[in-house]
Design a protein around this nucleic acid. Structure first.
Lengths: 338, 338
DNA sequence: GACGAAGTTTACAACGTTGAATGAGAGTGT
DNA sequence: ACACTCTCATTCAACGTTGTAAACTTCGTC
């Protein structure tokens, strides 16, 4: 069906290996034969069979990106960034959704499908410190996020604690002292929720403000509806606060919506900040202050580290951190300022 | 490095072909040998090399999904749906972003990378009727959306005209007669914008309401900021209207934000409806009425049609339509009703 | 105890490609 | 004129798998 090296060779009147040599820019191909072959290639519309090439060379030119779910905007934007970063290296990206399901996260690593790619960029949600020994596959792995704290895989981390401390400090600098938190996970320490909560507490502590669990709302998932429900919960409890820290943008937007319904003016009655710098935070009413966790840097670093690891499988695991940045917008500093 | 059929065969004391037979559940394998082989497989942690299998069998078990950009929520949700639909058939999905760039859309089809998959599900944005002859690759293609009107590829379409007419009728049924449109494309006929505008005009005409170009705002892209800018533009022109039809949800949300800033009460002063049924429309303030274009059905149908086409490359192209549904929410019917 | 018909296992070739080794010509220095 | 090098092209084997066909068992039947 498809044309092969042999077909081209027959038309050009050379051996199929010579065609291969032309395609791979081998030295020692006479210009006249090269031209002859190139004509034949164009004539037949020959395209190399990447599967055969992969089998022979041992690598596929693809990487797998495993993440919870694309319909969550954070992961969609992450995937966008990873695809663009991979494209710069001529790699194509194959996406697996784990649905934040522990079994599916484990399955991703053991599935033979993984071998259709040269490596795995993995953003786990359910796997934690206890599962470190299970983080293993027959391709190199780079972990994203800060869910796994101390593993022997390569690792590109969000600076959750530091970024969260900065976000909290931003609110404190504005004179807010009763900062509610939306989106904590009960009992968690190592995951994003735990670390961001820790950054929040550190910021309070540094200013001598006591931590009050009464203005911390716990949720199970980080969807918009959970943010809304958590804020309803806070209001029902009669909690008093002058600021809200949504542990991610989606939660913050859900919370902001409920606050507005309840008659709060933002930022006057309550300043709101999120985390992730989703594109949409620039267009909410008011625009949402947030933290840019360095998404593009994360994607680019992840691809680079993965390629290094593929080239050099041995060597100690590397842990990288992305630079973050607090992004003040109307929900904390009001409409007047830039 | 990795264990192969031969390694397993050596351990089990059989020929490598017998191991292959066990793995492929061939009949006529003695239970005792099967057991022996299975022990060896487990012991060595053998996993089949999918690349070799692909080369031999001629298909890869992957499909390519080409779309403009994952950070656009509509396409993220579409990708989610396609991945899940593909997974049901044991297929993995490889994503290419075209960035709404004509050259990249063309390149996707001619890239040898495409041959790493068995087929292409393609959601073009820039290619139009004039390019029908360019829609061709050495794998089967299924087109999504309604950008290409009359091609000889398989095709799963949104019912843009009909759905848009229904959305408009929904507003008309609420007694609104001055319905502004946000997001038209200048001079377009065949694309989503053109078709949705046509549905809008048909609905007006059916009720004997004249079309007024003065309340139609044109944009270049369908981002939130474009919706906001378009609404600014309408307000600056002094346009009067009692409803707004955003040609997609993102535009509608951008428009809604500007309306609220300008002091409009929604839906009292202006009812707003979008198009796409993005997840986030359920959480805006007010929640956004919209049209569900049948995203899941589109994804599932696309995968099914593609598989049919792979199995049977000949045969006339099929054009399928997904069922749509108007979803009334607060932005048109207010908070009181369900 | 030979014979055919199953059941069971194996050898061989092929998928399309690339690396290593080999061969064929042409040019250079003695 | 001869060995030698250098350029260019070819042959051969291999990557790990599966389909085809052939070979070897086992078993029941006469």
């Amino acid at each position: 069906m498809a044309t092969t090296l042999h077909d081209v060779a027959r038309v050009a009147g050379v051996s199929f290996k010579t065609v291969s040599n032309v395609i791979n820019n081998h030295p020692h191909v006479r210009p006249t034969t090269r031209a002859k072959v190139e004509v034949a290639i164009r004539e037949l519309g020959y395209r190399p069979n990447l599967t055969a090439r992969s089998l022979r060379s041992g690598h596929t030119g693809a990487v797998t990106l495993a993440l919870p779910q694309l319909s969550l905007p954070y992961f969609a934007e992450l995937a966008d960034a990873v695809i663009e970063a991979a494209a710069k290296h001529g790699l194509v990206v194959l996406i697996e959704q784990t649905g934040a399901d522990r079994d599916r996260e484990l399955e991703v690593m053991s599935s033979p499908r993984l071998k259709m790619s040269d490596g795995l960029i993995f953003s786990p949600l359910e796997l934690g410190q206890a599962d470190v020994d299970l983080i293993r596959a027959d391709v190199p792995i780079v972990l994203l996020g800060e869910r796994i704290f101390d593993s022997n895989s390569d690792h590109v981390a969000i600076q959750n604690i530091e970024a969260s401390r900065s976000a909290t400090e931003h609110l404190l600098d504005l004179g807010r002292t009763r900062i509610a938190v939306v989106g904590a996970h009960q009992g968690e320490v190592i995951g994003s929720a735990g670390l961001r909560l820790r950054g929040y507490r550190e910021a309070l502590q540094a200013r001598g403000i006591p931590y009050d669990d009464g203005i911390v709302a716990y949720v199970r998932d980080w969807h918009r509806s959970n943010g809304a429900a958590a804020m309803h919960d806070l209001l029902d409890r009669g909690a008093t606060f002058d600021a809200v820290f949504g542990l991610n943008d989606t939660l913050a937007q859900g919370a902001m919506r409920v606050l507005q319904e309840a008659g709060y003016r933002i930022p006057d009655d309550a300043a709101v900040i999120g985390f992730d710098d989703l594109d949409e935070t620039r267009y909410s009413l008011p625009t949402l202050s947030t933290v840019d966790p360095g998404r593009n840097e994360i994607a680019e670093t992840a691809v680079k580290v993965l390629l290094d690891r593929i080239k050099n499988p041995e060597g100690p695991p590397r842990a990288m951190k992305a630079a973050f940045r607090v992004v003040p917008r109307e929900s904390t500093v009001g409409a007047g300022r830039p």
